[in-house]
Amino acid sequence: MYSVYEILRDNWLLLLVGQYPNGPLGGIVATLILSVLGIVLAFPLSVLLALARLSPWRVLRWPATVLVYVVRGVPLLMVILWVYFLVPLLIGREVSGFTTMLCTLVIYEGAYLSEVVRAGIQALPKGQTEAARALGHSHLGTMWFVILPQALYNMLPSMLSQFISTIKETTLGYVINVQELTFAANQINNQLLTKPFQVFFILAMTYYVVCFSLTQLTQWLERRIAHKRLGAVQVQPAAGDSTPLPSPVAAPQP
């Protein structure tokens, strides 16, 4: 295990930031930046997709459903290959591995997140939608003011889970030369050549620590939300709690 310490001591900077400033930003910082950007950009897309899937208009519902099914039915690696192929065609010039990975993550995570958002919307009691519509709100107004604020809050733990998945998915950037943590670890392994077990042990443990901590955070958040949403215990109005009700005209005797 001393060699593990040695490897860390000699290469911690590479693992942390890649070859920066002598090259692009890499290592775990790049992994985290890629993940955060991916999820943040995927979020609005996912809300739009979820709304499209739940919309009463077929012209929105069908394409959205097809897109989500396709993205979920195909491996991430395949999506990466598609994006790598299509994006330069669409915008007319080559894109870096980082950009490709980011686009891929946005699409992939957008589809998965949209399922989370959709589940959150559908988990709300139907009465909320009915009440909003009964008050005269339009479909979109209902979504914006009543449904989405509740659904998104309830789904925070699931969204955080998806963020953790994104961190794990960034490892595939290795396949297209994106300088993230797995790439850095492979660089070290290719230099050392004789300590693969130690290097990959470090790699696995780094991911473990990051993802495990975030998982704990997710569970704490879940408990907190459940507590808040289920509400305080039903409050019994004590005597004099509410102001006296206006007295009606004396009711006619039966």
């Binding site: 077990f197 696995a204 991911y207 998982t215």
Partner: peptide, 23 residues
């Protein structure tokens, strides 16, 4: 379970193929 859920699958594959293989 915790290990397998928190370490990316690709890294697990590499760990087996490079790391554990060498042992």
């Amino acid at each position: 379970v915790s290990y397998h859920r928190n370490v990316p699958t690709l890294v697990q594959l590499m760990f087996w193929y490079f790391g554990i293989f060498s042992l």
